[in-house]
Amino acid sequence: MKPIGYVVVALVAAAAGFGIYQFALAPRAVELPQVANETNGSAPAQDAAEGDSDDGLPEILPDFTLANLEGQPQSIRSWTGKSMIVNFWATWCAPCRREIPLLNKIQAEHGAEGFQIVGVAVDFREDVLKYAKEIGIDYPLLIGEEDGLEAVTKFGRGSLGFPFTVFTDNQHRLVLFHLGEIHPEQAEVMLATVRRVNAGELTPAAARAVAAKQLQELPAAKE
Rank of each mutant, 00 (worst) to 15 (best):
E31F: 12
G180C: 11
A151E: 00
P3F: 12
V128W: 00
V12R: 07
A207G: 07
A49Y: 06
V175M: 11
E188V: 11
A206N: 05
E31Y: 09
A14L: 13
F18I: 06
L61N: 01
Q72I: 07
R195F: 14
V152N: 02
E113H: 04
V86M: 02
A121S: 10
F115W: 00
T80Y: 09
K105W: 11
F155Y: 13
A15Q: 01
K82D: 04
E50S: 13
D52Y: 05
N87P: 14
L32T: 03
S78V: 09
L61W: 01
T39N: 14
P44K: 10
C93V: 01
A108S: 14
E150V: 11
L61D: 00
E59W: 05
T168Q: 05
Y131I: 04
V7K: 14
D138K: 14
H183Q: 13
M84H: 05
F162V: 08
A10G: 05
V30E: 05
H110M: 03
A26S: 13
F115G: 09
P62H: 08
V12G: 13
V194A: 11
L191Y: 03
L215R: 00
N198D: 05
I117D: 00
A108Y: 01
H183F: 15
L149Y: 02
K130Q: 15
N37G: 13
R196P: 11
A67D: 03
S42H: 05
F23G: 07
G19L: 11
A29T: 08
E150D: 13
F167H: 02
T165C: 08
E217I: 06
A132G: 07
S75H: 09
E38W: 07
V122E: 00
G180L: 07
A205W: 05
A212I: 06
G111H: 04
A108L: 09
N40E: 11
I100P: 08
T39C: 15
L160G: 12
A121L: 01
Y6C: 06
T193Q: 04
A187S: 15
G71D: 01
L102I: 02
T65H: 04
E113I: 09
I4K: 07
W89A: 10
P58F: 08
T153G: 12
P219E: 00
A205G: 02
L149M: 04
Y139A: 09
C96W: 00
R97E: 02
I135A: 10
E113A: 12
L142M: 12
L103G: 05
F64N: 02
L160A: 11
Q186I: 02
F23I: 03
A209D: 13
